[in-house]
Design a protein around this nucleic acid. Structure first.
Lengths: 223, 223
DNA sequence: GCATGTTACAATGCATACATAGTGAAAGAC
DNA sequence: GTCTTTCACTATGTATGCATTGTAACATGC
C-alpha cells in the first residue's frame, strides 16, 4: 500500500471496510474469506479479523464460520426494525444537542447542509441531496455530547445510508424531508429539546414508512 | 480449567469477563495487561483479545494501549447519559413484545418475576429483589422479536445492573419500582403497546432520578 | 529534594504457524 | 443419471514469535 501508517492497521481496516459497506461498494450479501480480504487490504489476517469483529458488533457484517465474513443484507422486516430503533434513539441526539444550547457556528453549519439539500432538490440531484442529508444527521450526532449515543447510532446511520442509496431512485418525498430538517433546525435553534425530539422522530418515522412503501412497490427482497 | 470446550474460547472468554464485570467481580477501574488476563483464563492472548474487542464495543471495557484493558467506571454524568439512552431504547422492547401479543406462558413467566420482587421486598431482601428485577427486564428483552434491539440494549442492562448493585444499599423506592413492573405487565397483557412503552419509560426515568439522587447524596464519584 | 536524562523492561500490534474440521468435488455404486 | 462415499483442500480458531514503543525506575545534575 502507498500510505496510511497513520495509526493502526486495525483502525485502517475498520475504516476502509466500513466505508465500503456504507457506500455499497461492498454490497449486501458480499462474502469472501478472511485471507482474501487481508490480501486485498495488504495486511495479515490478524488486524483484519479484529476489524471484522468490530464491524460485526456494529451489525454490518456477520462472521460465518466456514464461509468468510458476510456483508449483512437486510430483509424488509429488518429495515422496519432498523427504523424502529433509529426512531427511538436518534431523537435523543437532538435532545442532547438542543440542551447544550448550540452556538451560531453550529447552527449555521447545520443550516448549510439544509441549504445544500434544498439546492440539490432544485437541481434534481438525488445523489447530492442524500449526501447533504447524511452530513446533516452526522453533524447532529457529532455535536451532541453523549458518546454512548454516538457509538450506538452511528452504525445505524450506515445502514440507513445503504437503504437510502438503494431506494433513492424511487423516492418522491424529498421536498417534505427537506422541510422536516428545516423544522428540526428551528427547534434546535430555539433550544427546544422536546420539539427537536418530536421533529426528528417524526422525520425518521415518515422516512421509514416511505422506504417501506418503496420496498413493497418494487418488491425488493434485500438491501 | 475443568470444562467448557462447548464452543470457542473467544465465546467463553467473552461470557466469563462480561459476567464478572456485570456482577462487579471485576470492579470499575480494574485494569490488567492482556497476558495476565489470558493466563487467568487459561488461554492465549488471541481469544482474550477478540473477546475484549467485543466488550469494548459493548462499552464495558476500554483498551488502553500501554496499560491493559480497563473495566469502565462511569462518572455520575455518564450514569445520567446511560439512563437517557436506556429510557429511549428499552421501551421499544416492550412495544415489540406487546405487538407480538404475548401468550399466557410468557406473561406468567414475567408475572412470576414480579411476584419474586414483591416477596423479596417483604423479606427485606434487596439482593433477591434486584435479581428478580433483572430477570424481568432480561426476559422482556429476550421475548421481544427485534434482534438488533436486543443486541443494543443488552449491554446497557449490564451497566445498569452494576449501578444498581452499587446503589442498592441506599435505595428506598423498591415498593414503587415493583408496582411499576406490575403496571407494565398489565399493559403487556392487554397488548397495549403504547401503554407498555410509556410505563417502561417512566419506570426507567424514575429509577434514573432515584439513582442520581443516591449518587449525589452519597457523593459517589464513579460506578 | 527536585528536575531531567537514560535505560531496561514489558505490553501491544501484527505476522506467522499449525491443527481441526467443514466443504465441495471427484469417484464409485445403483 | 442420481445418490452416496471418500478425500483433498481450505478457512478458521488459536498459539506463538517478534519488532516497536511507551513506561517507569533509576541515575545524574542542580
Amino acid at each position: 500500500m502507498t500510505a496510511n501508517q497513520k495509526s493502526t492497521l486495525v483502525a485502517s481496516a475498520y475504516r476502509r471496510l466500513r466505508t465500503d459497506i456504507r457506500e455499497n461498494r461492498l454490497a449486501p450479501g458480499f462474502q469472501a474469506p478472511e485471507p482474501e480480504i487481508a490480501t486485498r487490504l495488504g495486511m495479515s489476517r490478524t488486524p483484519v479479523r479484529e476489524a471484522l469483529i468490530r464491524l460485526q458488533a456494529d451489525g454490518l457484517v456477520r462472521l460465518v464460520p466456514r464461509h468468510g465474513p458476510l456483508v449483512i443484507a437486510l430483509t424488509p422486516s429488518e429495515v422496519q426494525r432498523l427504523y424502529d430503533v433509529l426512531s427511538a434513539l436518534e431523537p435523543e441526539a437532538a435532545v442532547s444537542l438542543a440542551d447544550a444550547a448550540p452556538d451560531t457556528e453550529t447552527l449555521s453549519a447545520l443550516s448549510g447542509y439544509v441549504g445544500d439539500m434544498a439546492q440539490a432538490l432544485d437541481r434534481q440531484d438525488p445523489q447530492g441531496w442524500l449526501a447533504a442529508d447524511d452530513l446533516f444527521h452526522q453533524e447532529i450526532l457529532s455535536l451532541q455530547t453523549n458518546p454512548r449515543l454516538h457509538h450506538m447510532v452511528s452504525p445505524l446511520l450506515d445502514h440507513v445510508h445503504r437503504v437510502l442509496l438503494t431506494t433513492l431512485p424511487y423516492r418522491d418525498q424529498m421536498q417534505r424531508a427537506t422541510e422536516d430538517h428545516q423544522t428540526l433546525l428551528a427547534e434546535l435553534a430555539a433550544g427546544n429539546a422536546n420539539g427537536a425530539r418530536r421533529e426528528l422522530r417524526q422525520h425518521r418515522k415518515r422516512e421509514g414508512r416511505e422506504v417501506m412503501e418503496i420496498i413493497a412497490a418494487q418488491s425488493l427482497t434485500e438491501l
